[in-house]
């Protein structure tokens, strides 16, 4: 690993951290356009974060140190994940420290801390949110792992860079199992990031809210970190999707300044498209009842398993 690689690595992480709120702003903008509303500014999430950081933090009287620690851990996990996902280049120093399974583990770490923090103050909504968040988690995680298994069966590795390189090498054609697992992945992405069929990030309706319920007791900088982490999580998931299914534009091997010139615009175009797609899905679908979420995620699981079966069935 050269110094250049480390610089690229740092650049990738910083770019993810910086771009994540913009992606969120872009999704909101697209959604507003699709719904014939006047769109908020692309930079609104940034202004929000800035505002929150400047406020005085209010903690509940019985909040424990865990409550104050959790936002940092959640944020840290998401930043690390951004460093591990090969969104621009496949040969970055941090990438070797975790494969896709460890990445899933990292997301679970963030979720567990989020849920524990939500239970810490002991309000009705906090615990309810924690419970629902964990429920979505334990349903989505197997589906996500199955998606990863399919990808790893095709490319004989669970490491994201290896999968990306295998796809880039052009040895994989039109693969039905990849298509199915992509569908499964989109469903998981929607559920894990609290997007519309599963959760609505824009409301605090107590009957249905999941993610927002866990954040109710947070304010100011802690809330800002949590929201930033949520934006980063969306960014990360979209980038995992690219690594697994649409790796075009990612630089193979050592990435130089020239490589970055290709990789960054490619990533930007892909992100913009994915954001618009996400907004479209959210616009055309209706929020599910909480009790229907397991069925939603079961279908994601089914897609992933079907992908696996098809891979083995047609692979012989």
């Amino acid at each position: 690993m050269t110094l250049g690689d480390w610089i690229t690595q740092g650049l990738e992480v910083l770019m993810a951290v910086a771009a994540a709120p913009v992606l969120l702003g872009w999704v909101n903008q697209c959604r507003a356009w699709l719904q014939n509303r006047r769109a908020p500014s692309l930079w609104l999430p940034y202004r929000n974060l800035h505002k929150l950081f400047h406020k005085e933090a209010v903690l509940a009287e019985n909040a424990s140190p865990l409550f104050r620690l959790a936002p940092y851990v959640v944020f840290g996990a998401m930043v690390l994940a951004a460093g591990i996902i090969p969104s621009m280049g496949t040969r970055l120093p941090l990438v070797v420290s975790a494969d896709a399974i460890a990445l899933v583990g990292l997301f679970v770490t963030a979720r567990v801390f989020l849920a524990l923090a939500a239970m810490d103050v002991g309000t009705a909504f906090g615990t309810l949110g924690a419970r629902r968040e964990m429920m979505v988690g334990f349903l989505a995680e197997p589906a996500l792992l199955m998606v990863i298994f399919v990808a790893s069966m095709i490319s004989a590795s669970t490491a994201l860079p290896a999968i990306t390189e295998h796809l880039l090498s052009g040895r994989v054609g039109l693969s039905p199992s990849l298509a199915f697992s992509a569908v499964a992945f989109v469903l998981v992405l929607l559920a894990e990031n609290g997007r519309i069929p599963v959760d609505n990030p824009a409301t605090h309706l107590e009957l249905t809210m999941i993610h927002e319920a866990t954040l109710l007791e947070y304010s100011a900088r802690h809330l800002a970190l949590m929201e930033w982490a949520a934006a980063l999580k969306l960014f990360n998931y979209v980038c995992i999707g690219f690594a697994l299914f649409l790796p075009w534009g990612v630089a193979e091997g050592h990435i130089g300044p020239l490589g970055l010139l290709v990789a960054i615009p490619a990533l930007a175009v892909k992100l913009a498209t994915a954001g618009a797609g996400l907004a479209l899905i959210e616009t055309v679908s209706a929020k599910l009842r909480v009790l229907r979420i397991p069925e939603f995620l079961a279908s994601a699981f089914l897609f992933a398993v079907l992908a696996l079966l098809v891979q083995v069935l047609l692979g012989t």
Binding site: E56, E61, T123, L216
Partner: peptide
């Protein structure tokens, strides 16, 4: 956070 934003932390009852 500490260096940039010097806001203090206040304790209050949880939101009911």
């Amino acid at each position: 956070v500490r260096l940039t934003y010097r806001q203090r932390v206040r304790r209050s009852p949880a939101w009911d």
